[in-house]
């Protein structure tokens, strides 16, 4: 299904996770979440971005039943996570941020244990398929303590998938993971999404969100400050830059160009023009005309678009 069409279908369905007025204050007095409202659509990949201490892990912890909420409600697939915790938790798989595994267990035993813990009947075929998908099959009889960090991360993912969850939380999945495994995980996440699993990931790697997410949420100081379709976010908040390489360096810009708010870069050999993609007119035509009128010639030009990271940093600066 094409992303736009999929997004419209997801938006029309009831949310698979609904967070209402959720707050969390720890016994130390630290308020980790402030009146959070969030709805996750069925079958989407949702990236939750935020700096350290923003409340990402606390939010995930509450939804998964690890942290107690101070106020508010959360439902997973229509089941309240407190009153109807069995049905709610049975839908959810969690891959934690830390590499917390049973050192002395074998891969097969620990993944089978997870499936049993979630009340599912043994299904060696499913465990085998999961281990093969995660390239763990040849390690199935190895003790976890003998595995590398990347392999342990795969084991955690296998454990989370052992009971065939409808919702998968990946808390910083790429932390300490090499490029190959990251690519493998991205492939796996897309496969899961295509099979109907809703994936919520928190990440420090903006490129991960940019690469995979359908929607992006930004959390800062315990508050959700933005939830947006990734493509829409980049369209709305994305800025483009036009860089002109000058034939002769400039000491200063002529006053006739003040309206364009140009920047002189690289010792006066480059002119940088930043424009908003949302504007009806970019102003490039007028700029080029005025440059010619001012006698400023250039030998080359290039454009670049702001990344999700630039947008993210910009949003946090605005809030600071």
């Amino acid at each position: 299904m094409r992303p736009a069409r999929r997004s419209a279908t997801q938006a029309a369905m009831p949310p698979i996770i609904s967070v209402s007025n959720l707050s969390k204050t720890y016994s130390s007095g630290f308020q980790a979440l402030r009146n959070v409202n969030l709805q996750i659509r069925r079958g989407e990949i949702f990236a939750l971005l935020g700096p350290n201490g923003a409340g990402k892990t606390t939010l995930i912890g509450i939804i998964c039943g690890i942290v107690r909420p101070s106020a508010g409600t959360v439902s997973a697939d229509g089941h309240d996570i407190v009153r109807d915790f069995r049905a709610a938790r049975a839908k959810i798989g969690l891959v934690p941020q830390e590499l917390t595994t049973d050192a002395f267990e074998t891969v097969w035993a620990t993944v089978s244990f997870s499936r049993g813990l979630f009340g599912k009947a043994p299904n060696p075929a499913h465990i085998e398929k999961t281990l093969k998908t995660l390239s763990l099959w040849d390690k199935k009889d190895s003790r976890i303590m003998t595995l590398s960090g990347g392999m342990k991360r795969r084991v955690l993912i296998a454990k989370a998938l052992s009971h065939e969850p409808q919702i998968l939380f990946l808390d910083e999945p790429s932390a300490g993971v090499d490029v190959a495994l990251r690519q493998d995980m991205w492939r796996l996440v897309r496969t899961l999404r295509d099979s109907g699993v809703t994936v919520i990931l928190t990440t420090h790697y903006i490129e991960e969100a940019e690469e995979m997410a359908d929607r992006v949420g930004v959390i800062s100081r315990g508050e959700i400050i933005l939830v947006e379709e990734k493509s829409e976010l980049m369209r709305k908040l994305g800025r483009k830059q036009l860089t002109l390489q000058l034939q002769a360096p400039l000491d200063r810009l002529p006053p006739t160009l003040d309206a364009f708010r140009l920047e002189l870069a690289r010792g006066g050999t480059e002119l940088v023009y930043t424009y908003d993609t949302r504007g009806e007119r970019t102003g490039i035509t007028a700029l080029l005309r005025d440059l010619a009128a001012a006698g400023i010639r250039f030998k080359d030009l290039q454009t670049s678009q702001s990344s999700l990271e630039d947008i993210f940093v910009g949003l946090l600066r605005e809030r600071a």
């Binding site: 069995r86 938790r89 969690l94 049973d102 813990l117 979630f118």
Partner: peptide, 14 residues
């Protein structure tokens, strides 16, 4: 101690 308790707490177990 090891942190694996997360799995018990997040499972549908009373």
């Amino acid at each position: 101690f090891s942190g694996t308790i997360y799995e018990i707490l997040s499972a549908p177990v009373s």
